[in-house]
Design a protein around this nucleic acid. Structure first.
Length: 568
DNA sequence: GCCGTTTTCGGCCCGACTGTTTTCAGTCG
């Protein structure tokens, strides 16, 4: 069962936003946000342990969380939800529009959604209003358009958590034999529009009935013998299909898609006089294959194609030629090269993060807290050096886990980083990332990223596009030029696994690989549970056809260290 | 609302950037 922490933290975060929107004290807002972050990042399940154990949670928040665990909400949250229309909260998702502006727009103009704001701007209703010049209005319209494009889709992390909750709940239903999710989630696309779940069951009606009554179901859209569709808390639709046991493989193949991949497969079938459907591969009435995906692909003359490749991007041709790559897997990953602690903006201590890394069985693990130019983090060289000493001492109790002391540098507008070469040389690994000046021109941003690659102290470019799904667009740059520089200088590009970043995205990974770039699949963890996000980064890597050879943190320690030294 | 070698009250990550402003408010990381 999914941990209660994420849902409880989401409710508290929503409360923080609503509290801010109603003009609540900013320090209290920060307290709620801080506690929400700490709860989400807490390694223990708060429905099992006392939530007061979580740092930043005092008596008042603990009461709210206990009420949430009992009934899925708390009184103060209900009150603010009733006071503030949902659309007003959505206003703050528009970049550069915060709670103050949202409140003003609602109170003085009755604007209660991004669409209403776009309408008001176009109608000139805000003309002359202090703070709403032509540039601000243009930026807001652009932000609203971007919000609309992202639609109701959620990122892979949200969808995966929900899907696992659904699977766990259905496995508990008596008479259920197999349960799995298919669709774009199984292909690990970066955003997900709905979740397809397949099951086989002795009593389909009983399964459908149990499904409709699950606590995560907010609305039943349709329900029959073979298919039930519901809406869930995160607003995501889940379709449950009960399929015949003998057609399991065919159904899994069919509902995994992509549509384009399946069209190509069916074309191959038609040429042979066969038919492929969700019930099986047929020649007339005769079943050629249906029980497993492997049998179906084998009958078509190819090895099983991993779901992450099924986009009609050349995988069928490669499979027919017997040239599918041996994709990198989570088991291949030997370490993590970009993680944080509570020295900067993480929520867990160095000791806790390292202990969790050891439990994951890593061969190496880098601590890369922020560097001083990100002023809010209050980092200093003294703090970094003191942390290095702590890492050295901690190393003594972890003989099988090589600890690397690193940092996440800031790439300034001109491409320079926080510290001079002699300081960088003291770190085992330096990740360098853009954290400001996102709107530079493509020319400036390209020069900036190339300058960072050319810095001999920089090993990895962190979250290269800086996009945040649904919140911030990627920066503009000439990626061909950037990747050429990375290949030439031996600078790795990061695949930041944090599911709202997913950065690089897989199409850019594929482009970078074409230029001979190496990659580092990192969690960018700010809490212990985030270490597990690496699986999403592996998904991106697979979608880009990466093998172990392409990914530096699948390499044995000595080879990795040689690569890091070689960058110098 | 949380927290404590500034310890039960009075602080709370804080500076840069943007678009607008004629001195600053809001937002962001």
């Amino acid at each position: 069962m999914a941990r209660a922490n994420d849902a409880a933290a989401a409710a508290l975060q929503e409360y923080a936003e609503l509290f801010a929107l109603t003009g609540g004290d900013a320090f209290r807002v920060r307290s709620y946000q801080k506690a929400a972050k700490a709860i989400a990042g807490h390694p223990e399940d708060i429905s099992v342990v006392d939530v007061r154990e979580v740092p930043g949670v005092g008596e008042a928040i603990a009461k709210k969380m206990e009420e949430f665990l009992r009934r899925g909400s708390f009184r103060q949250l209900d009150e603010l939800r009733a006071l503030v229309p949902e659309g007003v909260r959505r206003l703050t998702r528009i970049p550069s529009l915060g709670p103050k502006t949202a409140l003003l727009l609602f109170n003085e103009y009755g604007i209660d959604s991004p669409d209403a704001l776009a309408e008001a701007i176009r109608a000139g209703r805000l003309k002359g209003r202090k703070g709403f010049g032509p540039k601000t209005e243009a930026n807001l319209l652009k932000g609203i358009e971007q919000l609309r494009r992202s639609g109701a889709r959620v990122h892979l992390g949200v969808a995966t958590a929900l899907a696992e909750q659904v699977l766990a709940s259905l496995r508990e239903v008596p008479g259920v034999n197999r349960v799995a999710y298919a669709g774009s989630l199984r292909r690990m696309r970066e955003t997900i529009g709905d979740i397809d779940v397949l099951a086989t069951a002795d009593d389909p009606a009983a399964l459908m009935d149990a499904f409709r009554r699950q606590p995560y179901v907010t609305e039943v859209i349709a329900s029959g013998e073979a298919k039930t569709s519901v809406l869930t808390g995160p607003g995501l639709q889940v379709d449950l299909r009960v399929v015949p046991a003998g057609s399991w493989g065919a159904a899994l193949q069919y509902f995994t898609g992509s549509k384009e991949h399946n069209v190509r497969l069916r074309e191959i079938c038609v040429k042979r006089g066969w038919k492929l459907s969700e019930y099986g591969l047929f020649e007339g009435e005769r079943v050629i294959a249906a029980e497993t995906e492997e049998e179906i692909y084998a009958a078509l003359g190819m090895p099983w194609v991993p779901p992450t490749l099924r986009e009609d991007g050349g995988e069928i041709e490669a499979a027919l030629r017997g040239e599918l790559p041996r994709l990198v897997t989570l088991e291949d990953v030997r370490g993590d090269l970009h993680t944080h602690t509570d020295l900067t903006d993480g929520v867990a201590s160095l000791e806790e993060m390292v202990a969790a890394a050891a439990r994951r069985g890593y061969a190496y693990y880098a601590v890369t807290d922020h560097a001083p130019d990100l002023v809010m983090q209050r980092m200093t060289l003294e703090k970094a050096l003191a942390q290095r000493e702590r890492v050295r001492r901690l190393q003594e109790s972890h003989p099988d886990l090589r600890l690397l002391h690193g940092t996440e540098l800031n790439i300034g507008p001109d491409g320079t980083v926080d510290w001079p070469a002699e300081v960088l040389d003291g770190f085992d690994v330096c990740v360098a990332s853009v954290h400001s000046h996102f709107t530079q021109s493509s020319e400036e941003m390209t020069r900036r990223l190339i300058a960072a690659c050319e810095n001999p102290g920089v090993h990895i470019i962190g979250h290269p596009t800086t996009r945040k799904i649904g919140k911030r667009p990627p920066v503009e740059a000439d990626w061909d030029a950037v990747f050429r520089a990375a290949a030439r200088t031996g600078t790795a590009m990061e695949i930041d696994s944090y599911p709202d970043r997913a950065d690089l995205p897989s199409d850019l990974v594929r482009l970078a690989r074409h230029h001979g770039v190496k990659f580092s699949i990192d969690s960018d963890a700010h809490a212990v549970p985030h270490l597990a996000h690496q699986r999403f980064g592996v998904g991106i890597a697979q979608r880009a056809w990466l093998t172990r050879e392409d990914v530096i943190n699948t390499w044995p320690l000595e080879r990795l260290l040689a690569f890091l030294r070689g960058s110098r």
